[in-house]
């Protein structure tokens, strides 16, 4: 929530003036949509794939930010749901399904089911205990994937015939990029919307004061479970897209360090900030990509940056932009 007091009568809190800030998402969307058309002119074709991966990870980070930032649930197992989504695609391919839409849709459903089951157990705990239980479940999923020999076990599974996008196939070489962009935009818009809905307000209330929320009559557990399940489903979508992006899936996708990286990305971007997920992902992955050009030891400059973020933007890089918007 905004930390700036609006004094004293907030008349018409519902109507916000259309400012430059509200156009920002559209500008970002337009630039991203134009990127595959412009990139070849600058010899940046390679980066079309990079941006596509960025967008997919942004979907996962946005879903994590929803439960972490708005819901206060510090889950260290989010990559587990990404993995469930990816392996659902593998299972669909193995079963002979050729449609991307069917495979991705199934990935959403299956990861929602996993998230509901895992959430139902782990949401009975709080704080560090919740974190450890989500980690434990994700590790179980990881070892399950390692042991699935039909799907390649440790070595992973290659998808040799890319999934079909139905009527969109063959429209353009980079059609998959735009599909990913559209889905990422949809997820971003959806989560921004939910954040200002009744559900979002209830979720943030639980984050800030769970006991009080229960004492005011909110079904706290159910609200958290719905949020957790939704976030798991969206993470599953990211996993499914990642499977199509790489045409390869391996258990390393759901290694616990992947969950931790997602957490750090959201923390860098800004927990509970609308742009927290996308910003964190963009900063982390771009830095990693650039630094890798110069050094094999790209982790340490990123560590340095983390320290800088802690000092100069402890609530995430998104807060820096907030202040700028206000002064403009």
């Amino acid at each position: 929530m905004s930390s700036v007091a609006t004094l004293p009568l907030p008349a018409g809190a519902g109507a916000r003036p259309r400012s430059a800030a509200s156009l920002l998402p559209w500008v970002v969307l337009a630039v991203l949509a134009a990127f595959p058309l412009i990139a070849p002119a600058f010899g940046l074709e390679y980066y079309i794939g990079f941006v596509r991966r960025l967008l997919i990870v942004m979907i996962a980070a946005t879903s994590l930010n929803f439960i972490l930032g708005y819901g206060g649930m510090v889950a260290l197992g989010h990559a587990g749901f990404v993995g469930v989504g990816a392996y659902t695609v593998v299972a669909m391919v193995e079963a002979g399904v050729g449609s991307a839409w069917a495979a991705w849709g199934m990935a959403i459903v299956i990861s929602a089911v996993f998230a509901a089951a895992i959430g139902a157990v782990s949401l009975r705990a709080r704080g560090v205990y919740f974190l450890m239980i989500t980690l434990a479940f994700a590790q179980m999923l990881y070892y399950l994937a390692v042991s699935l020999r039909t799907y390649g076990g440790d070595d992973g599974y290659g998808i040799y015939t890319p999934l079909s996008l139905g009527g969109l196939d063959g429209l353009h070489a980079d059609i998959f990029y735009w599909v990913v962009l559209a889905l990422a935009a949809l997820v971003f818009a959806f989560s921004s919307r939910v954040a200002v809905s009744r559900f979002g307000h209830a979720l943030m209330g639980i984050r800030d004061n769970e006991t009080r929320m229960a004492a005011m009559g909110y079904p706290v557990y159910r609200i958290k479970l719905v949020a957790f399940t939704g976030a798991g489903a969206v993470a599953g979508l990211a996993g499914a897209l990642l499977a199509s992006h790489n045409n390869f899936v391996s258990p390393s996708l759901m290694h616990w360090t992947e969950s931790a990286t997602l957490l750090v990305m959201v923390a860098i971007g800004g927990m509970g900030k609308r742009w927290g997920g996308p910003l964190g992902v963009a900063i982390w992955l771009t830095l990693a990509e650039v630094l890798k050009l110069y050094t094999e030891y790209w982790h340490w400059p990123i560590g340095l940056m983390l320290i800088l973020v802690v000092f100069f933007a402890p609530k995430g890089v998104a807060t820096l932009f907030e202040r700028k918007e206000k002064t403009q």
């Binding site: 919307r193 939910v194 809905s197 009744r198 559900f199 979002g200 209830a202 609200i223």
Partner: peptide, 16 residues
């Protein structure tokens, strides 16, 4: 909000 209908509404702005 706790006592005026369901909190499981996701898409309409509460401010309205």
């Amino acid at each position: 909000q706790a006592h005026a209908g369901s909190s499981f509404r996701f898409l309409s702005r509460r401010a309205a």
